[in-house]
């Protein structure tokens, strides 16, 4: 595996393998000294053309815990403002000796395009409405580990609630969850569902109350407040009434049900209950797991150049 651009590129074996490697990384992260020399000498550049503090810091933490060097490129403070093209930016960084680019961009397909301009590995850290593969992997990791079924989500129902249409997180999660065997239910007003949703391998419900008492996972998406301007929903109060996780709805969750959110949360919009009061909340665990998953992805892409012909016989 050279790049991580889209969850659809991963086979089930790839997915299970990354989750398995993440278990090892989680063990590293629990140590007194959470750092191993696995990627010593590698340079990883985080290239963010769209603001995202938590994803960038998660990747940078992951890279440092594997002893890689990290370059941070923020478009907001770079020569992009002087008119430098995407291609020149990536070729310049490549020339400095970067082995992997972690890319976030508001336009779908930018990481794929960049992967054609560099010999380095490219990891999609979110592109437009398209994909956010490491978020999907960390969410699949969180759920499989919580339920103690490391290779499957068979028999589980996950409700993904909110703005599905504009959500790359939803697209990555739907693909991974369904291929691991889960049933996915989308809960959203019709205006926030993608066109052709009927061709997706999911069920659709129009209010939270239809699903809240019979799902294994409630996955809330961030209600992007800027959507208000495009008139996708009449007003936030209406959205909150029908789709938010309220204390009343939290009270009817099944005992084992998990509450998840990719962050950052809009308290009072998609969630009006304090997650600290919901026993099944794994929102902070998702953040912790995110570092382990990103370590696993970096290690899988960069850890082995796999020239096995040089190995000698027996134990070294």
């Amino acid at each position: 595996m050279k790049h991580l651009l889209d969850t659809h590129d991963l086979s089930i074996d790839d997915i299970v393998n990354i989750l398995d490697v993440a278990d090892r990384m989680a063990e590293v992260n629990r140590r007194q000294v959470p750092k191993v020399p696995a990627l010593k000498g590698k340079t990883i550049a985080t290239v963010f053309f769209e603001d995202s503090t938590r994803t960038r810091l998660s990747f940078e933490t992951a890279a440092r815990r594997l002893s890689a060097d990290v370059l941070t490129f923020l478009a907001s403070s770079s020569s992009v403002n002087k008119g430098e093209s995407l291609r020149d930016t990536i070729e310049t960084l490549s020339a400095m000796g970067v082995q992997a680019f972690v890319v976030r961009h508001k336009s779908s397909g930018v990481p794929l395009q960049l992967s054609q301009w560099t010999d380095a590995s490219v990891i999609n850290a979110g592109d437009g409405w398209h994909q956010h593969p490491t978020q999907g992997l960390l969410d699949a990791y969180t759920i499989t580990r919580e339920f103690g079924t490391p290779t499957s989500l068979a028999g589980r129902t996950v409700a993904i609630v909110g703005d599905i249409k504009h959500s790359r997180v939803a697209r990555s999660n739907i693909d991974l969850f369904t291929r691991l065997g889960a049933r996915v239910v989308l809960v959203a007003p019709p205006s926030l569902l993608p066109s052709h949703v009927e061709t997706w391998p999911v069920d659709v419900r129009s209010t939270m109350d239809d699903v809240i008492d019979n799902v294994d996972v409630v996955y809330l998406l961030r209600m992007q407040l800027e959507r208000m301007q495009s008139a996708s929903i009449p007003n936030l109060a209406e959205y909150t009434r029908l789709y938010a996780l309220t204390p009343e709805r939290a009270a009817v969750l099944q005992d084992h049900a998990l509450l998840m959110h990719p962050g950052p949360m809009n308290r009072g919009v998609e969630i009006t209950v304090d997650p600290a009061d919901v026993a099944g909340s794994r929102i902070l665990q998702q953040v912790t797991n995110g570092v382990s998953i990103r370590m696993a992805v970096l290690f899988t892409l960069l850890g082995g150049d796999s020239v096995s012909s040089l190995t000698a016989g027996g134990e070294a």
């Binding site: 490697v21 090892r24 082995g304 096995s308």
Partner: peptide, 13 residues
């Protein structure tokens, strides 16, 4: 995760 020969052999955890 501590080997000095990643480039010489496939990664098997």
């Amino acid at each position: 995760l501590y080997r000095d020969d990643y480039s010489l052999r496939p990664v098997v955890l």
